[in-house]
Every structure is written in structure tokens, then in C-alpha cells.
Design a protein around this nucleic acid. Structure first.
Lengths: 341, 341
DNA sequence: GTGAAAGCGCTAACAG
DNA sequence: CTGTTAGCGCTTTCAC
């Protein structure tokens, strides 16, 4: 009961050769239908399980794709993962998740780890402070395909799947303008990341389109965590000329800021309108409910995984569609509704 | 550049035997210091990377532990994972995470998957609707150690690490009683899980200790999601005799209920005091801030992982300490503070 | 259709 | 201290 069953055991039991067992198990079409059945039955009955290592060592393939995530704690990310998992398992691939907790060191370590595990391909989203792609070079060297999703390198030779962050930033900002805001603050994250840089550009473009000057002091680059939310709220309270609208690129941070301001007598949306980002559950629970930008995480995962698998199976048009950009949706709730309909 | 470097290549280059290379690479102490250095240098220079499969197939060990999580989306869970990761990597183990999204089918599939991947040991927390442990039997049969954490089987032959849910339930309820509540509602999850059953028992015991009768209609078994929160809040609104305190075993659901009630004119904590569970970030953002029960996720992860590794290394006292229970802390915020100090 | 045999990269006796 | 040798379980020519 302790010993593993191997194809040799099945071969012995059936008076066949290991080669035939192997062929039958792998659905080779040159084995007689009757034999195949017999083998499959025996395998089942004897409790046979492939030894993936032995298989991998021979084939050089692992049928596994690695997924590097920068953070697990978000709704968006779990949706993306769900999408990846779906497509992967539909195509017979396993996935192994490595999460870097927004930490570059960990990301580097994880990437090497996945490389050593010999994943067939890699899907990755960058940690907050990842600035170079040296650690992905091993994959390039061995010609193991890598596709980035969500947080990608601004200008890199890799394929990637992203949200249209520019458009998202533009629409969120324009929405605030349409609600009558003129002094719009933008609270965002590290703009060396495409994600935040593009949203910022969208914000600027929307202001420009409506002839509102961009003011440097209204653009706040922060860590987007709880402390940052409180700190920024405090700064707003101290401003002589407060903003009348704030676009924060993260719901959690937006919620913190908003609560803090409300607690200090600011009326939302009347004094200051708010728009967040992500459609996190928190946006529906907080009062006033937070307007936000939603994007299709599950589909992003599905698309990224499908492209990787296509490439693995040699059907890749990587060169033809190396950048895929997905469209966001603005969700308007009370926090930004100054005008009643 | 495309070909993998093997220990044979190094052996050839250095005019040594593969065995010596292997020994040097694995830090065996019977190899001469000078040779070891030479080998390590060469390996580095030639770009050698172990082939984990070849290694695993020989040793029968993968130096990998599988982690089954019922849900990733919580703060608590990511803390647990961080703890597991820390201990694992300190001991030279990799971890592979499989998440079941509260879905039994997926859990079953993940467990088999990890089994096939030949993890050396398993840490698992059960999905919402997992009721039997048939899928873990393969591990038992092959004597691969499994330790459950957080969500465990109420009465099972496995070791586990849990929160003292009874105590948590007791303290949360007693706190409400001390604040003057007498009609205390308990909103919780599936009580076939230890987690919820024990909290319920704690709730009942606290009521009993204060001579408050337990009323069946005040105990609500729900799914603890958003819809459940709204539905329960609606039911409360329709009650002739409303509760004056509610203990919800999940912060998110508590927040939803609370918001909904407040929106319908209920004053929190004056009319109804609230206590949640988990110390989720949301508990600090919502107004009034939510009292809650916090527990040490990171330590739970560390302890679970350490115990598993001890067992793997034959230092296990599994029989002696098969159940480890961790102590929760009640965090009092505005949502339950009826009495001012 | 099936079998025999070689070998993937590595480790673990057993010698020396 | 180092080398020789024999597999681990599987796939894959090449024969039959």
C-alpha cells in the first residue's frame, strides 16, 4: 500500500510491455482499442497515478504555467486568477501561483523559482517597486514565453494584456468635470508603472480637453494604503483652496480619505466629489457609496492565459497582437453625484 | 544556449565525476573544500540550474508543501499565507497555493492535483461546503502528512491549528452584554464547520452565564455574503421586537448589515450595537467603526507550517500536540460602545 | 500493434 | 575524498 504503482506493475499484471502501457495511457492512436481499455481499467483498479517527474524529465514539458501576482488581496486579482484557472484547466494546464506582496525581492525570487520548476510559460504582473526586467531574462534566454498582465513594463519587448488606463483616467476625470468640479485632485500610485502613469495622463488630458489648467500640487503620488489616505485627507483639510473633486486610483484608499474628510465636517459629494478605482466591495458598503471604475478581471485573466497557451502550442500570433488593451466602465454612485437627475 | 547544462557537462569541464559534482552542489561535507569551490564556480559560470524533476524522481521528495486555501480575498488569509511562506522558505521548502474559492468541487480537484504534484506535505483549510474528507484519504494512504488550519473538520483524525472560536464567540457576546444589550442576535455561517459552530457555542454560553435565554429566532445561519447581509438587515427591520445587539461572524457581512440598517434610520450603537469578526480593513473604514475580533493570522500560518515541517523531518510530536488553539483578541470600536467611559 | 532497449538528469550505494 | 555503477519512472526510437 505504501509503494507507488508504476507502468511496470501494470505491464506485469497484463503481460504487456511498459511501452504499450505508456502508449495506452497517453491516448496514442496506434494501440488497439481493446488493449487500451484493458490498460485503462487496470490502471484505475490498481490505483495508478502518473509520476509527473518521470514524465517531465523525458518530455521537457510540465504542462504547468506559472502566475506571478503582485497582490492577492484584491477582488480584481482573484477575478483574474479565476479567469486564468478556467482557461488553463480547459486546456489541460495546471497553474502555480506565486505572490510577491508588492515586494520586488520576492518577485525576483518567485520568478527564479518558477523558472527552476520549469513552468512551460509565465503570466506576470509586477510588484509595486519592480523597475527592471533582468529577472525575466532567463525566460527569454530559454525561449519560455512570458506574458505580462495588468502591471506591465511601460516599454518592453514582452506581450501584455492591460486595462485601458488612459481611458479610465480620462473618463473618471471627465465625469467629475461634468458634475461641476473644477479643482480636481488626483491621488495615485507610483507612476513608473504603466497603470498609474496612464491614468495620470488620462486625468491630464481630460482637464486639458475642458480647458482646466493642470496644477502640480493637485497631483499626489502616494503608496495608496491606509496611512496615505489619512495623510492626504489631512493635507486637504489644511489647504486654503480645497479641491471640489478627488479622483483616487484605488477604492480602499479613496474610502479611507473620504471617511476621514467626512469625519472632519466635509460633505461628500457636495463639498468634494469622489471617484475611486477597482469596484472593490468596499465601494458599495461605504456611505456615500463610492463611484468607481470597474474592469473585467475575469476576462483579462482568460485572455492572457489563452494567448500564452496559443503561443505554447505554436499557434501564437504574438507579433501580430502583442498588446491587448481592455476597456473599463465607469460606475457612478452617490459619492460623485452633485447634479441630481 | 538552448541546451540545458547538466552535472555531466560540469564533470567533463572539470575532469571530475558527476557524483562529485552532485555532492559538491548539495553541500555534502565529504568533498574537499577546494573542489567544492571549483565546482560551484564552474556551475555559476556555465549557467547550471538543477533539474528539479531528475532530483525529485530520485529522492522521492519535492521539498514542496501544498497549501489549500478556501479563500484568498481576506486579510486574514494573506496573513496566514505570509506566515506559511516565511517558515517554509526558512526551511528550504517551496509552497504551492491552490485556492478553492469556497467550492468543494474545486477543493477536491486541487487536493488531487497537489497529490499528483507529489507535495511532501499539505496544509489545508476547508471550503464552505466541504463536508467529508474522502479526498484527503489519498494522502493518509501514502502517509503524506496533512495539517488543517482555521477551517477544520470538527472531529477528525487530523492534526489542526485553529482559533479559539468558542472563546471568541463568548467574549464578543459578553462584551455586548456588558454594554447593556439583552436581545442579542447572532448572524453566522454554516455550523457544520468548527469555526462557526464553536462561535455559536460561545455565544450561547455567554448568554447562559448572564441568565439570558437563548432564542432560536435570534440565531441566523447564513452565507455571510452581501446578499445575506441585506436580507438579514431587512428581516431585522420587520421584527416587532428588534435586537439591541448583533454579533456577526464576518466583518464584511456585518458592515453590509450595519450600513443597510443605518440607512433605514437605525442608530448604531444606540439602537443596535454591532460586533463583527476578522479585523478586516473595512472595519476601520466604515462609520461607525466596527468592533471586531482579531486573530493572529501570521502566527497561525507560522505554527501550522512549522508543525508540518517538524513532522516531515521526523521531529513530529503530532500525537502529543495534535490540536493547537490560538487566542483571539476583541477590538472595541464605536459600533458597540453604548457606555461612554 | 507491440516489445526491447536506451536514456532523460540526478543520487546513492559501493568501491577504491 | 572521489569514481563507478545502477537505477528512479517514463517515453521513444527501432525492430519485429
Amino acid at each position: 500500500m505504501d509503494k507507488e504503482i508504476t507502468i511496470y506493475d501494470i505491464a506485469d499484471a497484463l503481460k504487456l510491455s511498459p511501452a504499450t502501457i505508456s502508449r495506452a495511457l497517453n491516448g496514442s492512436d496506434i494501440v488497439k482499442e481493446k488493449t487500451r481499455k484493458k490498460v485503462l481499467d487496470a490502471a484505475e483498479k490498481m490505483g495508478y497515478r502518473v509520476n509527473a517527474f518521470a514524465k517531465n524529465i523525458r518530455t521537457g514539458k510540465t504542462k504547468t504555467i506559472g502566475v506571478v501576482v503582485h497582490e492577492l488581496r484584491s477582488n480584481f486579482m482573484t477575478s483574474v486568477l479565476a479567469g486564468i484557472e478556467k482557461v488553463a484547466s480547459d486546456n489541460g494546464y495546471d497553474i502555480v501561483i506565486a505572490h510577491s506582496s508588492e515586494n520586488k525581492e520576492k518577485e525576483v525570487q518567485n520568478v527564479f523559482n518558477l523558472f527552476n520548476k520549469r513552468v512551460d510559460g509565465l503570466l506576470a504582473s509586477l510588484a509595486f517597486d519592480t523597475a527592471d526586467w533582468n529577472h525575466y531574462k532567463v525566460f527569454v534566454d530559454k525561449k519560455v514565453p512570458v506574458i505580462f498582465y495588468d502591471r506591465v513594463f511601460p516599454r518592453s519587448p514582452f506581450s501584455n494584456v492591460t486595462l485601458d488606463n488612459f481611458k479610465a483616467g480620462y473618463e473618471a476625470t471627465e465625469h467629475l468635470i461634468e458634475q461641476g468640479c473644477r479643482r480636481i485632485m488626483h491621488v495615485t500610485g507610483d507612476i513608473s508603472k504603466n497603470v498609474y502613469l496612464d491614468r495620470l495622463d488620462g486625468y491630464k488630458a481630460a482637464l486639458a480637453a475642458h480647458d482646466i489648467p493642470v496644477q502640480k500640487e493637485m497631483i499626489r503620488v502616494t503608496t495608496l494604503n491606509e496611512e496615505a489616505g489619512i495623510a492626504e485627507a489631512d493635507k486637504v483639510l489644511k489647504m486654503k483652496a480645497r479641491p471640489d473633486g478627488i479622483f483616487v486610483t484605488n477604492d480602499f484608499c479613496a474610502a479611507v480619505m473620504m471617511s476621514h474628510l467626512v469625519e472632519h465636517g466635509v460633505k461628500v459629494p457636495q463639498d468634494i466629489a469622489f471617484v475611486g478605482f477597482n469596484d472593490d466591495p468596499i465601494s458599495k458598503i461605504i456611505r456615500p457609496k463610492l463611484s468607481t471604475v470597474k474592469y473585467p478581471g475575469q476576462q483579462m485573466g482568460e485572455i492572457a492565459a489563452q494567448r500564452l497557451i496559443n503561443e505554447l502550442q505554436g499557434q501564437g500570433n504574438a507579433a501580430l497582437e502583442s498588446q491587448i488593451v481592455m476597456r473599463p466602465t465607469l460606475i457612478v454612485r452617490q459619492s460623485s453625484t452633485k447634479k441630481k437627475n
